[in-house]
């Protein structure tokens, strides 16, 4: 592949970020990226949303730590106790 369009560049983004592009295609991809400011901005934004999703969900997990609703705690303990009694029988 001697030249690459923005459309092809967009198709290769995920494999590029995963380091899974064939070396020849990667070289062509990087030549295109070097010349195309629009694709560089798109790549930056595409990578940013991956990172942002991870940060936002990790933050959500941290906020939720230790915050299991009491009625759910009780339901789980009751189910476990019932199962224990059944196993003992």
């Amino acid at each position: 592949m001697s030249k690459m369009t923005c459309r092809a560049c967009s198709d290769f983004l995920a494999d590029y970020l995963d380091g899974q592009l064939d070396p020849g295609i990667r070289a062509t991809f990087e030549v295109h990226l070097d010349k195309c400011r629009n694709c560089r901005a798109y790549l930056e934004q595409y990578a940013a949303v991956i990172k942002a999703g991870r940060c936002a969900c990790e933050r959500e997990n941290e906020q939720a730590a230790g915050a299991l609703p009491e009625e759910l705690v009780r339901a789980i303990l009751a189910a476990q106790a019932e199962r224990g009694n059944t196993s003992d029988a």
């Binding site: 459309r7 942002a52 936002a56 933050r59």
Partner: peptide, 25 residues
């Protein structure tokens, strides 16, 4: 011709930094 229809802009602050702010989460 295979070019994007839209123009994408890089801000003065990296997009990942902007989106990772607590108020954006």
């Amino acid at each position: 011709d295979g070019h994007f229809m839209e123009r994408f802009e890089s801000g003065s602050e990296p997009a990942d930094v902007r989106l990772s702010r607590i108020e954006e989460q």
